[in-house]
Design a binder for these strands. Structure first.
Length: 873
RNA sequence: GCCCCCUUGGCGAAAUUGGUAUACGCAGCGGACUUAAAAUCCGUAGGUCGAAAGACCGUGCCGGUUCAAGUCCGGCAGGGGGCACCA
């Protein structure tokens, strides 16, 4: 993509040329909007004005804006401009999610400081966003790596800590011994660190955790209140929280060992208790650990299990492995029966109690294990007439069959599934076998990261006082600038001048916590800070309660779980600590699709950029050749734009060539906003053609001084108001592609009317003004220029949204389709308020209806007023 | 494995939520303008048959409900997404 501008002629003002020149027009209006501070919201809305908060997920300053950002921010901007025109006090801020690993990687690669790199990127990207003409309140801009922001975050940390919402515990982490750092699961590839390639170890580290699990029930229940969220996201959150009901029960050991008299297990399938054949413990289970102390083989087994990875693929392949402890427990419901106790690699310590009873007949994992270690498979308890003996596939009873619980007498048969579980839970409780318990899949959120470029955790470790919070007065704990990345690991660990500090409690020698916070923390409350980003406390509670919850939040589906769940948790935690008083941060959520592009390949490996390829043909006959040599090129899949596949389009180049409005119009047309949009050069050119065509039309209308040769045009005016009515409903529903189609139809009609010359200049101008207002949220610069050309006063961006005249929305007469036996055979035009009977009568008199009836009896005539007539013969 | 979503022309899609299927755009084709091309404009466009009028078929496939189904119900196929040794 070259970035040569289409024309070098200097800023011609509207009336001088037929050609619309975005390059000059767009910056001119941007300057005027900025001068008038049109998009800056007051701290609190003016009296009588309703607040409306539009927010797009803030970007990570990776270097340059990509086309996905353009789509995201264009969508938000349409809503912001529309709501402003509707009379709302709109808050539409922008900031930067600026901490994170890429800055450290860049620092290592380029021998620079992560901060320098980050702020340079921010400057570049701010400039790019400003070229788009977004109606953003730049006065509220901040980056999460600003001391002012993360210092406030440290205050939140301390208040959460004081409120018992943060605690410290040991946790298993992926440790890269070469880079001397912790890796996220996604950074471990085939058991090796993604950067260093070193074998990753499982290590125990003491880390800080948010007690998000305290809110599990609430976070789950309140999903129901999120009416303006996509069902898909709500479902994903619910599954992530993962509530299940089950039975907590003890299996008594035949002989006590290491102080254990029983093993407590958790099961969601108490109905399979009778099929229990062994007990399995997690390797980290306290009893496993205790036993391993005097059993080297078990100790080795435990270590070995820990070494194996936890990635999906590895788990898939991993064999079920176990270690027989030699211990036995009594079956609680069967006299004299005992079960062996194993330590098994497939049992997780952090779900339930870290111990299970296994029922091989009805659980595939248990069955695999039982076959391997030759344990009994007891499959008689579903007592189904047609049940075949379990071989190598566990039998999971279908939903409708009845099952029997244990050896209880008749009368306790129940259906399987949740009903069976609930019934057997009751039964088990009555028998005193255990207690019903609710479990959540959701785990506490570990926030410690062993990295430099993040918000320092405001804690001091003192040998005599333990962990001591940094006193409020000493906040912020500022990241030191004089650091180096010449050695692996967190540079804070070797920065003694920063690290060593007197204990705030006893004054003795102490050290700072060198871990920083997960960057998800930064993005969990920024939306609240935007309400008043200069306040000296983390939030201005009053301003935040005015603006929050965010009325419309827009971002990628990839944040459907973590970011949104963490933010929901933070809102609650901030409420507990008095920093906010809403529970749900986002009233409306919209997840937009990606911008994707076809890929092209020469040979097996060489990706080609779209600019190097020439396309021809259609359907199966589509063909691509390399422009330079004419050789055939493989057309690959349509994929997310990525550097590696070279299918990237640079927004700057598009704006240089076509202007911001064209780019905005294109990403808003065609594809529904929640679906992926395929970027095509032809599509962009089409959008640009419309810009030029529209401008030409407005010029023609604005310069015509006629009025003599034409009259009012009722059809055109009616269409304009119908379109306005539709657009007015489509924009708030974010159905931009549908709104765009509406506008096209109206513009086509307006153009036809202008050419025909039978409509008065005044009528044309009135309709043109309406169209300009309708396109203004999407193409604000063009709208502004047209607004001026049409002689309208003030700024289009500051104008009130027009209202459709209800009288013009309906015609006096309507045309109804007429069906014979459900197939359309013609239509009929009748007065709007003609009675059902009269419509039926008129329809039956139609020639084609008569012909269809012939001599057959009319069995039924269905008349749906205003909709359809169906004659059944 | 469990949970969820999607499937409409050559392509992106629309269909007022059960009431005229394919609006609008892209690509195509025919034409006008031009020495020519680009740009622009006009026309055409689901499939089959037909000179035409028109007829029949048609929203992934099979079946059902209904006067009427892209839309609702049951089954199947294909594509996509989420979760996952969660007991």
């Amino acid at each position: 993509m070259t970035s040569a501008p289409e024309t070098n002629s200097p800023a011609p003002l509207a009336t001088q040329t037929n050609r619309y020149d975005p390059a000059s027009v767009e910056t001119r209006w941007q300057d005027i909007w900025a001068e008038q501070k049109l998009f800056e919201a007051p701290t609190e809305p003016a009296p009588g004005k309703e607040p409306y908060y539009v927010l797009e997920m803030f970007p990570y300053p990776s270097g340059r804006i990509h086309i996905g950002h353009v789509r995201n921010y264009a969508m938000g901007d349409v809503i912001a401009r529309y709501k402003r025109a509707k009379g709302f006090e709109v808050l539409h801020p922008m900031g930067w999610d600026a901490f994170g690993m890429p800055a450290e990687n860049a620092a290592m690669a380029n021998n620079t400081h992560p901060g320098t790199w980050t702020y340079e990127n921010i400057a570049t990207m701010r400039g790019q966003l400003q070229r788009m003409g977004l109606s953003l309140d730049w006065s509220r801009e901040f980056a999460t790596c600003d001391v002012d922001y993360y210092g406030k975050q440290q205050k939140l940390f301390l208040d959460f800590l004081a409120a018992g919402l943060i605690y410290r515990k040991n946790a298993k982490v992926n440790w890269d011994p070469v880079d001397m750092t912790v890796l996220a699961n996604e950074q471990v590839i085939d058991g090796k660190g993604w950067r260093s390639g070193a074998e990753v170890e499982q290590r125990d580290l003491t880390q800080w955790f948010f007690k998000i699990s305290d809110f599990a029930e609430e976070l789950l229940d309140d999903i129901d209140t999120l009416e303006n969220w996509p069902d898909k996201v709500k479902l994903m959150q619910a599954n992530w929280i993962g509530k299940s009901r089950g039975l907590l029960m003890g299996f008594d050991l035949t002989e006590p060992v290491h102080g254990f008299e029983a093993i407590e297990i958790y099961t969601t399938r108490p109905d399979t208790l009778a099929g229990a054949s062994f007990i399995a413990l997690a390797p980290e289970h306290p009893l496993s650990v205790a036993l391993a102390k005097d059993n080297t083989q078990l100790a080795e087994f435990n270590v070995d299990v820990r070494r194996s990875g936890t990635s999906e693929e590895e788990l898939e392949k991993a064999e079920k492995r176990g270690f027989d402890t030699g211990l036995r427990v009594k079956h609680p419901a069967k006299d004299n029966a005992t079960l062996p106790v194993y330590v098994a690699n497939f049992v997780l310590m952090d779900y339930g109690t870290g111990a299970i009873f296994a029922c091989p007949a009805h659980d595939q994992r248990d069955l695999d294990f039982a076959r391997k270690y030759d344990l009994p498979v007891i499959d008689t308890f579903f007592a189904l007439d047609n049940a075949e003996p379990v071989k190598n596939e566990a039998f999971v009873p279908p939903k409708t069959q009845t099952v029997r619980f244990l050896d209880q007498p008749a009368g306790v048969d129940v259906a399987t599934g949740q009903e069976a579980v609930d019934a057997t839970l009751d039964w088990a409780e009555k028998l005193g076998l255990g207690t019903a318990q609710t479990q959540f899949r959701l785990r506490d959120w570990g926030l410690s990261r062993q990295r430099y470029w993040g918000c320092p955790i405001p804690i001091i470790h003192c040998e005599s006082c333990g962990t001591v919070p940094v006193p409020d007065a000493d906040l912020p704990v500022v990241l030191p600038d004089d650091i180096t990345f010449d050695k692996p690991g967190n540079p804070l660990n070797r920065h003694d001048a920063w690290r060593k500090i007197a204990c705030p409690k006893c004054g003795g020698e102490a050290v700072r916590e060198t871990d920083t916070m997960d960057t998800f923390v930064d993005s969990s409350w920024y939306f609240a800070r935007f309400a008043d980003p200069t306040v000296t406390t983390p939030t201005n509670v009053s301003a935040a309660s005015t603006w929050l919850p965010v009325d419309q939040y827009i971002g990628g589906i990839e944040h459907a779980i973590l970011h949104l769940l963490y933010s929901r948790f933070f809102a609650r935690a901030m409420k507990v600590t008095g920093h906010l008083d809403v529970k749900e941060p986002f009233r409306g959520l919209f997840t937009q699709g990606m911008v994707v592009h076809e890929t092209y390949k020469r040979g097996e490996r060489e990706w080609l950029s779209p600019q190097e390829v020439e396309l021809s043909g259609e359907g199966d006959a589509r063909k691509a050749v390399l422009k330079s040599t004419g050789e055939d090129v493989t057309i690959g899949g349509i994929e997310k734009m990525s550097k590696s596949k070279r299918n990237i389009v640079d927004p700057d180049a598009i704006i240089d060539r076509y202007g911001a409005d064209t780019a905005r119009w294109f990403v808003l047309s065609d594809s529904p906003p929640d679906r992926d949009v395929v970027w095509t050069e032809a599509g962009v050119e089409g959008a640009h053609r419309f810009v030029q065509r529209f401008w030409k039309l407005i010029l023609a209308i604005s310069t015509s001084n006629g009025g003599g040769q034409g009259g009012a045009d009722n059809d055109l005016t009616r269409l304009a108001h119908r379109t306005l009515d539709n657009v007015d409903r489509m924009i708030p529903a974010l159905r931009y592609n549908a709104a765009v189609a509406q506008v096209y139809t109206l513009v086509n009609a307006l153009e036809a009317a202008e050419r025909k010359g039978t409509t008065s200049a005044e009528a044309l101008k009135t309709v043109a003004t309406l169209v300009v207002q309708m396109i203004a949220p999407m193409m604000p610069h063009l709208a502004e220029e047209c607004w001026a050309a049409l002689g309208e006063k003030g700024l289009c961006a500051a104008t009130t949204w027009p209202t459709a005249d209800p009288a013009l929305l309906e015609d006096d007469s309507i045309t109804l389709p007429v069906q014979i036996n459900g197939k359309k055979r013609g239509d009929i035009t009748v007065a709007k308020d003609l009675s059902k009977e009269d419509v039926e009568k008129a329809a039956l008199e139609l020639d084609f209806v008569q012909a269809a009836i012939a001599d057959k009896p009319v069995r039924r005539v269905v008349v749906v007023p205003g909709r359809i007539v169906n004659v059944v013969v």
